[in-house]
Simulated scan of single mutants.
Amino acid sequence: MPTAAAARGPWSHPGTAGGLHQFRTVLEKIRVPRPGAGRPRKKPDSVAADKGYSNHPRRDYPQRRGIRHTIPEKTDSQVARLREGSRGGRPPSFDEERYKKRNTVERAINKLKNSRAVATRYDKRGYVFLGTVAAASLIIWLRS
């Protein structure tokens, strides 16, 4: 009898399945304000992610929505693709300069997590946590 994890499909690890759902949720909630009047755009120009997001569904989703993505290919995926030869397809596009800018975001999140309340998320409600993140951001800004 198949387990519940096996019933979910080839991405049977719960963290992977939840990660894909959260990835979609985050991309769907993005609102990019316009410089002037008008509704905010619902999709960013591009998305940068680490190798953990390099599987096929996570690459497909932004591509279907017309969002450029910069996600490095895992070494084992690259080896498997090259082993297939011409049937393995082209390597996914990767903009190395754009990926380097991702480090700025990672460092900002690291600074936010220096605040104990942000790192442990004591707040139960989202709007309270958002206030905690805003206060921590203000402290970081004032110290710099």
Rank of each mutant, 00 (worst) to 15 (best):
K51W: 03
H56Y: 13
K111E: 02
I71M: 02
I67E: 00
F23M: 08
F129C: 11
T75S: 10
I139D: 01
L20A: 13
T132G: 02
R81E: 13
L130M: 13
K74I: 05
G9A: 07
I140C: 12
T16K: 03
L112I: 03
F23N: 02
G89E: 02
Y99M: 09
G36S: 07
R65A: 14
R81C: 10
K100A: 15
W11Q: 05
R87Y: 05
A5G: 01
A5Y: 04
V32S: 06
Y127W: 14
G18Q: 12
P62K: 06
G52Q: 09
G66N: 07
Y61W: 15
Y61F: 15
N110M: 09
Y53T: 01
I140L: 14
Q22E: 15
R58F: 05
E97V: 10
V26T: 12
E106D: 03
A17I: 02
I67S: 00
G19V: 04
S46L: 13
P57Q: 09
T104P: 00
P10E: 14
Y122S: 09
G89C: 07
G66V: 10
N110C: 12
A48Q: 14
L138V: 11
R83M: 07
K74M: 09
D45E: 13
A17K: 04
D95W: 11
R34C: 04
G52P: 04
S12K: 14
Q22K: 15
G36L: 02
T3W: 01
T75F: 08
Y99Q: 05
V26R: 05
G126A: 14
R81A: 11
G9T: 04
Q63G: 08
D50C: 11
I140P: 02
G88K: 00
H13N: 15
G85Q: 11
I30M: 13
A5R: 08
P40H: 11
D76V: 08
K100E: 14
I30D: 10
G66F: 07
A7S: 13
G89M: 04
P2K: 02
